[in-house]
Design a protein around this nucleic acid. Structure first.
Lengths: 263, 263
DNA sequence: GGTATATGGTTCGGTCCATAGACCATAAAG
DNA sequence: CTTTATGGTCTATGGACCGAACCATATACC
């Protein structure tokens, strides 16, 4: 009887949710969704630049979709310059280097128009992550401790920017997973992905990496020590820092945009 | 360049988000989404039993979709027994009474199989709502105070169960909106809707209504007084109460299910 | 009573999306 | 130099959604 309720959980959050009938229905194409998943996978570090995605036939089977549909998704990513497709044996769809457009140009084109949505996202993260950290500290078990330590080690072993970014992602995920609440894990991951994607990774100057490294260590330690208050405080500080960085960055770009003549 | 990123915000949260490639791609039909919106609208009290939804042609234009598609959605809702369609002038799609299947039967069929997802939802709500309440207390302005007072008045003026449920929804929404963060408003509303839908409204025995009424008043007062700690504490207690009620309910039903022979 | 009107009910042709499967082209492995 | 794993191309089929017209019915209004 209620089979028609099997709907996605926390969907359509960009709409003004005060009137459920406002706004058009958008059917999300299969290729569209596939692009989103693949891009997310790269953003989360499942595939790194230079690496090949699974072959088309395998993707089709993994995603329960025809090969033509997978190809359409990959075509769009190729067109947008995010992957490169090579033929022949040992061919495949290879993630390109530097496909994150973390330039002032991107910020002007994408970030400024949607600025209010962004502020809400950052705000939500800063409210949510301390709770997640505190909860993680209260609920973490031995497996979580192991995962946290491992993620931290990887983080410190990271040499270049890309490795560092992937390790960063893993630390935050390990914390979220220590809550043992899949909804929270998903929320945290999606907010991170969204911010990371739109920004072209969080601003990762060497200086930031040093500060973040310390904070990650403190955060993980607090969770391991089951000190929920400290975990919460550190998370608040950590995400407050990244928010401040983005605000500074945007402010600078905005000033630049005012000085320049519009293209 | 980045136009392919214009994707829904917090989507696909039911998937295991550790591997972005796991799980099939599901294209969400237009009718499917329309059903979801209409059902949500009723759950939120935009339309009450006995009332007619907008005419098909108007819905089609509102939702930016063809009339055939709207009709398909309404057909499904009719088939499922949620609305009744009447022809002729003054006809329309009328919300049926008692279409919330808050029976032990529903719980056995729907709630028990998805129990882990449900626990995560409740858990998330209990973690999130105190933060929302506290933030609302810190940020509420005079308009919010007016909205809160109005919602509270409506709540106390409510006579029957249905009115009470609608007013309940409005109180919680007024609190969420006092945070001035649309993402939080959406999250809170969607968690509430989902729980309410799957449960056939939260368990609303007269006794609960009395306790909830008091707590709602305290919550609104705390927000109005800008006392974030009290707001947070009351929210924690309030949602802890509803969670406990559901757990008791389910436990009772589960016991019944064990005693009965399976159909 | 009769007519106008607002609603749901039905039908038809068109377009686009996705599927399934076969086959071609290419480059590397063996 | 053959095999093989990959991407590239084509065609046929089914389904979803659209747009628009037209039918059926019950009420409002004259």
């Amino acid at each position: 009887m209620s089979e028609i309720f099997e709907a996605p959980l926390l969907n359509e959050l960009q709409r003004d949710s005060t009137d459920p009938l406002a706004g058009p229905i958008v059917v999300r194409n299969a290729p569209e969704q596939i692009v989103e998943r693949l891009v997310t996978a790269v953003a989360l570090g499942v595939y790194v630049p230079g690496q090949a995605l699974p072959p088309e036939r395998e993707l089709a089977s993994l995603l329960g979709v025809s090969r033509a549909t997978v190809r359409e998704a990959l075509r769009r990513m190729t067109d947008s310059g995010y992957i490169e497709q090579r033929r022949g044996r040992n061919g495949g769809s290879f993630v390109l280097e530097d496909w994150r457009p973390s330039s002032a140009d991107l910020i002007r084109r994408h970030l400024l128009p949607n600025w209010t949505r962004f502020e809400a996202l950052f705000d939500t993260r800063q409210l949510l992550e301390p709770v997640i950290a505190a909860t993680a500290a209260l609920r973490r078990n031995d497996d979580d401790v192991a995962a946290l330590s491992q993620a931290l080690d990887d983080y410190h072993a990271a040499t270049d920017r890309e490795e560092s970014r992937v390790a960063d992602e893993r630390v935050h995920r390990a914390v979220a997973e220590s809550t043992h609440n899949p909804v929270l894990v998903g929320l945290s991951a999606q907010i991170r992905t969204r911010i990371s994607l739109d920004l072209g990774a969080e601003p990762y100057t060497p200086e930031i990496r040093r500060v973040a490294a310390v904070q990650h260590g403190l955060l993980a330690d607090a969770v391991i020590d089951q000190d929920s208050e400290r975990a919460s405080a550190i998370a608040l500080e950590h995400f407050g820092l990244t928010e401040k960085l983005v605000r500074d960055l945007v402010a600078r770009v905005r000033d630049l945009a005012i000085l320049e003549t519009d293209e």
